[in-house]
Design a protein around this nucleic acid. Structure first.
Length: 354
DNA sequence: GATGCGTGGTT
DNA sequence: TAACCAAGCAT
């Protein structure tokens, strides 16, 4: 087993030196990693693809290039800048963590996995990844890529998530003492480029000779996963309350779904197609002949669009419709706004007032 | 350990 | 195209 261990890390690091991806947040060989950029990229990449993160990372570091600037940032600006990336608790925790770094750590990012783990938004994976990549600490870095690679290397047949403890132990055995950050990033490059979920490119893989799943002939069979539950269907109403050339926006509650985000007013999510519950004004609501479908992780939503003109009854702000893209709306509401604007524009052409 | 939490890319 | 999935975390 020791021979297999050293063979894996040696072959992987050799492969990494030749094939490593060049990414905006990744230090080139010989460069010193910027802990802020490493941390920010790791958080952005949680459950999010490299392709989606690339442009958002560039815009973010241009605006908030370090802990101090982010700690001093306006909450509304930060949430708007995160709009469209999803899992908005990540953005709320970024600010909390930046403030903690400034207030409790004298402006310097903690350098050990254990200290990093205490910051909001840094869980087992991210704390280990930052400790290894930014500070060179030997840490066992296990994300979905590593789970897949390790489950195949050792032919771990237990379905996820029950296999996680065994995968972690196995990952620990192959993690080298030196170049821990490169090793972690190499595992992720391997997982995303070669050891993919479907049709892994085993003939290009530097770990082929040590891979039990390859030897068994069906590496794509692993890791096994527990059966998914069907996502329930829910219904809701989005209210487009217009005043002149502005529309009413509200701020969602700080926790929960789309927490802390600017939004269009909505009714409750219900199991049946809803009525005009929780309308933000006593307007003469008209239902548009379109519905918005939006899938969340845990349920599907079908939304009715109600448009009206009137004065608002609750807290919020009147936002220029022409400048709605600057409001930082979550994708769900951006889709709804686009549908309303398209629909009413079409009606204007045929001479109907909205 | 299970559940809540988004969205865009890929197949 | 519908389904699957992603550099997970908090509770």
């Amino acid at each position: 087993m020791d021979a297999k261990r050293s063979s894996i890390s040696k072959n992987l690091l050799t492969w990494y030196d030749a094939h490593r991806r060049v990414l905006p947040w990744r230090a080139l060989p010989g460069e010193v990693p910027d802990p802020y950029r490493v941390w920010l990229s790791e958080v952005m990449l949680q459950q999010t693809t490299v392709a989606a993160v690339r442009p958002r990372f560039a815009a973010w570091v241009a605006r908030w290039p370090d802990f101090a600037s982010l700690a001093a940032a306006d909450d509304a600006d930060v949430m708007a800048a995160w709009a469209g990336l999803g899992y908005y608790a990540r953005a709320r925790n970024l600010v909390k963590a930046a403030k903690a770094v400034v207030a409790d750590h004298d402006g310097a990012f903690p350098r050990t996995e254990a200290q990093l783990r205490t910051l909001p938004g840094l869980g087992a994976y991210t704390a280990a990844a930052v400790a290894a990549i930014a500070f060179g600490e030997r840490a066992v870095v296990v994300d979905a890529n590593v789970e897949r690679v390790v489950a195949r290397l050792f032919a771990i047949d237990t379905p996820l998530p029950a296999a996680r403890p065994a995968i972690r132990v196995a990952a620990d055995t192959i993690t080298p003492d030196a170049r821990a950050g490169d090793f972690a990033q190499a595992m992720m490059d391997l997982g995303s480029g070669l050891c993919t979920v479907r049709a892994p490119k085993c003939l290009l893989c530097p770990l082929r000779e040590d891979c039990a799943a390859f030897a068994e002939g069906q590496p794509e069979r692993l890791p096994r996963k527990a059966a998914k539950r069907v996502r329930p269907q829910k219904y809701g109403t989005i209210f487009w309350l217009r005043r002149g050339d502005t529309v009413r926006l509200v701020r969602r509650p700080p926790k929960g779904l789309l927490g802390g985000m600017r939004a269009l007013p909505t009714g409750p999510w219900a199991t049946e197609p809803p009525a005009l519950t929780d309308a933000p004004a006593a307007a003469d609501w008209r239902i548009l002949p379109v519905t918005i479908r939006h899938g969340f992780t845990h349920f599907d939503l079908e939304l009715t669009l109600a448009v009206g003109v009137g004065e608002a009854q609750e807290d919020g702000e009147w936002w220029p419709i022409a400048d709605l893209s600057a409001a930082g709306l979550p994708t769900l509401f951006a889709k709804a706004a686009e549908a309303v604007i398209e629909s009413t524009a079409a009606e204007a052409v045929i001479g109907r007032d909205v």
